[in-house]
Amino acid sequence: MLTCAIIDDDEINRLTLEHYIELAPHLKLEASLADGIAGLTFFREGNKVDVLFLDIEMPHLSGLELLRVLTDPPEVIITTSRQDFAVDAFELRVTDYLVKPFDFARFSQAVQRVQSRQVAAVPAPPPAAESPANTDLFVKVNSRMVRINFDDVLYVEALSDYVNIVTAKHKYIVYTTLKALETRLSTFPNFIRVHRSYLLNTQHIESIEDNMANLRGGHFVPIGKSYQDGFYKSLQRI
């Protein structure tokens, strides 16, 4: 719904515009005023509309003079019997310029331009926040499929053809290799290889001493010599 105002000193023209607005279901008339002074008062009293249908030649204050005075005019559709004001009007950034007499089809076309400009002016919605990454994985433990939230995993230890997945409360022996699991966890930024036999979840580190990571719950994981440079560099980003 677009709110509208008419400012025109010709009563017949005002009645015509009022009728056209009544025919358009998406338009609502807020004011129909007979001269520019009344229009200036209307806006200075804080009234706002989406569309202003504005005549140019009016006593005391012309339509173009009114536009120059208004600090924040709405979308303006000029309605005039004169064609020679078009350049001046478009310099004032009017939306359309209707030369009287005009029919309802031409009126509707001008309103459509207002709608198109308003749609273009609406800012794009901000990008939706990314959903938190799903940190759950199913692993096969004996004959069961167990869901493990890998945010809770302290570390993973290689056991030949198996791995030991350790949380604060449980240990899961899973038939896979450490290399395969490391590849699977490549999208989990907190996991890092710290030893040929260990993957470590850095968010559970409480302290590091003598190349030994002390984890929550009294667990310790060694930091292998060949992994130390990469490991300590990663800590700078925590």
Rank of each mutant, 00 (worst) to 15 (best):
L2I: 07
A5S: 10
R14G: 04
E18Q: 05
E18I: 02
H19P: 03
Y20E: 00
I21V: 03
L23Y: 03
P25G: 02
P25N: 01
P25Q: 01
H26I: 04
L33F: 08
A34S: 13
A38D: 10
G46Q: 01
G46I: 01
D50E: 04
D50A: 03
F53Q: 00
F53N: 00
L54D: 09
L54Q: 06
D55N: 07
I56A: 08
E57K: 05
L61Q: 08
S62D: 11
G63H: 04
L64S: 04
E65F: 02
E65R: 02
L67R: 05
R68F: 03
L70N: 01
D72S: 15
P73H: 15
E75Y: 10
I77A: 10
I78R: 00
S81V: 15
S81E: 01
S81R: 05
Q83H: 11
D84W: 03
F85T: 04
F85N: 07
D88P: 04
A89E: 01
T95G: 00
D96I: 12
D96M: 07
P101E: 12
P101F: 12
P101W: 11
F102V: 05
F102L: 01
D103W: 01
A105P: 00
R106F: 12
F107T: 00
R113L: 09
V114L: 00
A121L: 13
E130G: 07
N134W: 13
T135V: 14
L137P: 06
L137V: 15
K140A: 06
N142Q: 10
M145D: 11
R147V: 13
D152T: 15
V153H: 00
A158I: 12
Y162V: 13
V163G: 12
V163N: 09
A168L: 15
Y172Q: 07
I173W: 07
V174R: 04
Y175I: 14
K179N: 11
K179F: 06
A180W: 11
E182S: 14
T183Q: 13
L185H: 09
F188D: 06
N190Q: 14
I192T: 15
I192G: 08
H195N: 07
H195I: 12
L199A: 08
T202E: 06
E206F: 01
I208S: 03
E209P: 02
A213Q: 09
L215E: 08
G217V: 11
G217Q: 08
H219C: 12
I223P: 01
Q228S: 15
G230Y: 10
F231Q: 02
Y232D: 01
Q236D: 05
I238K: 10
